[in-house]
Computed example of a mutant assay.
Amino acid sequence: MAAAFALPSATAFAQAAHSQSITTRTQVTDGMQLSNPWDMDFGVVLVQGAGTIVMTPAADTTCTVTGQLIHNGTCVASQFDATGAFLRRIRIRKPAQNRIVLTGPGADMIVSNVVIGGETGILRLTQNGRSRNIRYLVINPDGTFTFKMGGTLTVAADQAPGLYTGQFEVNLDYD
């Protein structure tokens, strides 16, 4: 018994080759630099009852006192000096939960409603409601810019005297 097999020719499976040119791009930029020449300082407070100190971070920082507090000393908003790339979008992220915890000899005090102001060299583009992220455009041709941060310090009526300090993190990213 003979078996016959038919094999297709090799050319029956050959397909025409196609090629396409594809462009790939990347941009390499210098990393941003960030420094903090001035820390946030609410000054000296005499507590005669509960109240708040609202620090507005502008070119000339101001503090407004409410309640039964007597404020003495200069209010200093935290200042940040940075270098980025001209016409790049950046994102500044405020502290977690938009607050800073101050610890000392008594109950913790909270700086809430952390705000950014006193900007130079950058243009504010957007802020998504209560979001911690604020987007800016670097408009200074040499890439340098400055911003300040303030907020609202809440002081309890029975706040123990002493020095209260806290740390917070600010993130700066290209957007």
Rank of each mutant, 00 (worst) to 15 (best):
C75Q: 00
V76D: 01
A77Y: 00
A77I: 00
A77F: 00
A77L: 00
S78V: 02
S78E: 03
Q79W: 05
F80E: 00
F80Q: 01
F80S: 00
F80D: 01
F80L: 02
D81T: 15
D81W: 04
D81P: 13
D81R: 10
A82W: 01
A82M: 05
T83S: 09
T83L: 09
T83W: 07
T83I: 10
G84P: 00
G84V: 04
A85V: 08
A85N: 13
F86T: 14
F86A: 12
L87G: 10
L87K: 13
L87E: 10
L87Y: 07
L87S: 13
R88M: 10
R88Y: 14
R89M: 15
R89S: 14
R89D: 15
I90W: 01
R91M: 10
I92K: 08
I92T: 09
I92A: 11
R93A: 12
R93D: 12
K94W: 07
P95Q: 08
P95V: 06
A96I: 12
A96L: 13
A96V: 13
A96M: 08
Q97T: 15
Q97N: 15
N98F: 06
N98I: 07
N98H: 10
N98Q: 14
R99E: 13
R99Q: 14
I100S: 01
I100E: 01
I100Y: 01
I100C: 02
I100H: 01
V101K: 10
V101P: 10
V101I: 15
L102R: 05
L102F: 06
T103F: 06
T103E: 12
T103H: 06
T103L: 05
G104V: 03
G104R: 03
G104Q: 03
G104N: 08
P105A: 14
P105Y: 08
P105Q: 10
P105G: 15
G106H: 03
G106L: 01
G106N: 10
G106T: 04
G106D: 04
A107W: 08
A107H: 15
A107R: 15
D108T: 12
M109P: 08
M109D: 09
I110K: 11
I110Q: 09
I110T: 13
I110S: 12
V111G: 02
V111F: 03
V111H: 01
V111T: 05
V111S: 03
S112Y: 05
S112N: 08
S112I: 03
N113T: 05
N113Q: 13
N113E: 09
N113D: 13
N113P: 09
V114H: 01
V114I: 10
V115E: 14
V115M: 13
I116Q: 02
G117E: 06
G117L: 04
G118Q: 01
G118Y: 00
E119S: 07
E119V: 05
